[in-house]
Design a binder for these strands. Structure first.
Lengths: 145, 145
DNA sequence: CTGTATGCAAAATCTTTGCAGCCTG
DNA sequence: CAGGCTGCAAAGATTTTGCATACAG
């Protein structure tokens, strides 16, 4: 099983809770999830997972490079997670419906590295976040600017 | 007095606490401050300001367009503030010393708008954040990659 | 004077931690 | 079996809110 091996390869045991958390992310490919959303989806059906475990698991999977952690402004400051293989350079936050999607752009990616460098910065990671109205919300409320 | 007028123009009374908060930002031009830092600096000398007031003031000044609010990852998820006239398109977060500086880049700015648009997004604001080691920390610890 | 603004303390969130017991490898 | 994992509840950390009082305009 691929997921199982992924866990093993980073030295984590393949427990039911970790598999469940990974399952949640696979069911939500192109979205960013916060800890609470992961928890709520994880307890569907099987209830045998606690919040603390979700937090610990998110931290471990991020540390292990399986998840990518982003911090952005969804009303309040929140940490959001996504599978790392979803290559993405940025997040699109809809301030109307709250959905957070992602996008890719090579030009932004390259330029970001160049700018960081010219500021004497050794870049480890970067986060590009756009706040606005998504196409769907834009359609349903025409008066938005 | 310019600051006084700025407050009046957005319908806020010029209280000692608000002036003090604005003073703190003027004393920290090119830096991002979180609520706690603002509070700690504000109570220097005069103690007549409470945390609740700092939070309320930050929210009001942001709402009024005097401050810019950014959410980023400084270890944990935090909201940081900066005077809005400091034109800036991005933040440089040093993961070694914790300092958060800013940078400007027209290319990134223009490209960001274009990318948002091509994703069907109406862009209101965006946040470019780079995480890495600043020049200073890089110098003091040579082994950093 | 009147409505805004403030401080304090309590409440609400969100996240982390201590601990005894459970389960994977 | 042993050490890593987990759930629970309590502790932390951060931000918001209710309320009586103080002050700007």
């Amino acid at each position: 099983m691929r997921v199982n091996d992924k866990l093993k390869s980073v030295g984590l045991k393949a427990t039911a809770q970790r598999l469940k958390v990974l399952q949640v992310f696979q069911d939500n490919e192109r979205r960013y999830l916060n800890a609470d959303e992961v928890y709520r989806q994880a307890i569907q059906g099987t209830k045998d997972i606690g919040r603390a475990t979700v937090y610990r698991t998110l931290a471990q999977l991020t540390e292990a490079g399986i998840l990518a952690r982003s911090v952005l402004d969804a009303g309040s400051a929140v940490a959001l997670y996504q599978l790392r293989n979803s290559s993405h350079s940025g997040a699109l936050v809809c301030t109307a419906c709250g959905q957070v999607g992602s996008f890719d752009d090579d030009i932004l990616e390259r330029r970001s590295r160049a700018v960081a460098e010219s500021n004497g910065f050794v870049l480890h990671r970067y986060q590009l976040t756009f706040y606005g109205y998504c196409a769907k919300c834009r359609a349903s409320q025409n008066r938005v600017k």
